[in-house]
């Protein structure tokens, strides 16, 4: 249940925050919620799969963070802002 709360907080953050970096952090929160779920269920069953999964997820999160932050830097360089509202320039 904690995991669910964490996940939903993260999701909420992604959906409502304006600052790109914070949105990104919220995605990290969501990944952590998944981790927590995996670990909780792993203990529940005494099954190591959840641990390995969490391990992989951390690795993936690290990779994502590297590229994501690079992109944020690129955005900041070209726009001077990381505000999502101000990044919306393409018309629909």
């Amino acid at each position: 249940m904690l995991a669910a709360a964490l996940f939903c907080i993260g999701m909420l953050g992604v959906l409502v925050r304006r600052n790109a970096l914070v949105v990104f952090m919220c995605i990290e929160l969501m990944l952590n919620a998944a981790n927590l779920t995996f670990l909780a269920f792993a203990r529940d069953r005494g099954d190591m799969t959840g641990h390995i999964s969490a391990f992989f997820i951390i690795a993936v999160a690290a990779a994502e963070a590297a590229v994501g932050l690079a992109i944020v830097i690129a955005v900041f360089r070209s726009r001077g802002t990381v505000n999502i509202e101000e990044i919306q320039t393409m018309k629909h």
Partner: peptide
């Protein structure tokens, strides 16, 4: 994945 991430991050930044 980590290789790709390194390349990608370097290239983008």
């Amino acid at each position: 994945l980590l290789l790709v991430a390194i390349v990608g991050a370097v290239v983008v930044a």
